[in-house]
């Protein structure tokens, strides 16, 4: 049995601080090339298949803009 996860980033709230990136144990997250209306390169799930839904990213996110989902497969 394995855990599969996914994150949804509130891209308008994200300030691109990258704290989630360095806290992701599976290198799932990266900063987008695109920017939001404030000009920030927001975080997104660059490698969706590697996400385990561990919630580390959401836990350290200062702006609480990450929602985490997880399923057992």
């Amino acid at each position: 049995m394995a855990l599969r996860g996914a994150i949804v980033v509130d891209t308008e709230k994200c300030k691109g601080c990258s704290v989630c990136l360095v806290n992701c144990p599976t290198n799932t997250i990266a900063l987008a090339k695109e920017v939001n209306s404030k000009g920030y390169n927001y975080a997104y799930m660059a490698n969706p298949e590697s996400c385990t839904g561990c919630s580390n990213c959401a836990t350290v996110c200062p702006d609480t803009c990450i929602t985490v989902y997880r399923v057992k497969v």
Binding site: R4, G5, A6, V8, E12, K13, K15, G16, C17, S18, V19, Y40, M45, P48, G53, S55, A58, T59, P62, D63, T64, I66, T67, V68, Y69, R70, V71
Partner: peptide, 28 residues
């Protein structure tokens, strides 16, 4: 991914005690 992102699979989301206001703090 769209099969994972379903309400019943949600394990972490913003608490309602936090408002929806965007914080004025610097990134990070």
């Amino acid at each position: 991914v769209k099969d994972i992102i379903k309400p019943e699979n949600k394990v972490y989301s913003k608490t309602s005690v936090l408002t929806d206001n965007v914080m004025h703090y610097c990134p990070g």
